[in-house]
Simulated scan of single mutants.
Amino acid sequence: MSKIRKKKIKKTNILLGFICILLAVLLGFILVTSYKSEQKESRHLSEIADDQQSGIEDYEAVKEHAKELEEISSEEAEDTEDIKSKNTEDTKDTEKTDADKTEDTKDKTTAASGIVCWGDDLINGEESNTYSYMTVLQKLLTDNGYNMTVINKTLQGGGTLSMMKMAGVSDETLQGYITRHQQAANGAQLNVTETGIRDLTEEQTTRNDMDCIPVIFMGYYGGWNHDPAELADQQEQILNTFQNKDQFIVVGTRPMDGSVTSEALDQVLSQKWGEHYISLANVTAQPSSTYEAQQAMAEAILQKLQELNYISKN
């Protein structure tokens, strides 16, 4: 074989070897690229799967949340019904309580042991047994079928300070009135009823009437510094000593010395006591110490007792 031919064969082998190397490199590149593509596709598919799983979990979470909301709404509805039911029961209980209170008030009214008259007794001696408003009132009650006893706690010729003392008002309170009277007088001479308190017997200060219905008729002989507002305050001091402070009658007449007119007295006392007040000036034109005035006052007291439903026939 010639040298020239050998050289050609050698070059061909070298070329083939080079081509093989290139093919091997190309194949390796193709394999690497394919592997990377497969890895990328695999990651993409994994992400899609994760997203789907997350979506499923979110959907389940939404369903669970909706179920919780439905349960809460149902509980709130039940609570609302419970509240409505409780309110209905409370209303019924309130109505029952109010009815019981009304019944209790009625019982207290019928439980009063009698009628007690506090204040001035303008007729004394044998005449009082026949003509005083207390005697007439007792007769009217009996004649009209009311089983009520009239108790006499009046104080003949006494001032209002002595009446409060007899009712048990404290000495400190009484001294406060006396001090104000002296200050207002500014050194002038005062009537004894404005500063003095008479000595009282044990029988007079003993209280057996605190469950009775009081009729307050006081002020004719003074003791209230010619001030209707103070007289009303003193009347209240006596009323506060009774068990039932809602049931009472106040009768007003101008003082003996004429220092205050009936109109001025009625204006203050009627405003203070409202439906509980009787103006003697509106009942009779006679002086309060007359038989006619005492009769008229007794009739007015009976009418007021009936109007206020304080008494009932047994």
Rank of each mutant, 00 (worst) to 15 (best):
E76Y: 08
K304P: 04
R254F: 09
I213M: 11
E68A: 11
V268N: 01
I278A: 06
S54L: 13
L27K: 01
V32N: 02
V169D: 02
Y146K: 07
L302N: 07
E89N: 11
G274I: 01
S113W: 00
S170W: 01
V250Y: 09
G222F: 06
A293I: 03
A232Q: 02
A61Y: 02
A298P: 10
N147K: 14
K304G: 04
S37V: 08
M256T: 03
T154E: 14
F242H: 06
L22V: 15
D82P: 00
Q294A: 09
E275N: 15
I115S: 08
L31T: 08
I311S: 05
R5M: 01
I216D: 05
L31R: 03
S128E: 12
K108H: 02
T253G: 03
N240D: 15
I213C: 09
D107P: 00
T135H: 04
L69P: 00
N314V: 04
D82H: 10
N314I: 01
T201W: 03
K6L: 11
S73A: 14
S37R: 09
A229E: 15
G252P: 02
V250G: 10
L140W: 04
P214I: 08
G55Q: 12
E60A: 02
A77L: 11
V150M: 10
E78K: 12
Q237G: 00
Q247R: 15
L305F: 07
I249V: 15
K8L: 12
L137G: 09
I30N: 12
I278H: 11
T91M: 13
Q234R: 12
V192L: 05
V25W: 07
W273I: 01
D104H: 09
E236T: 15
I278F: 09
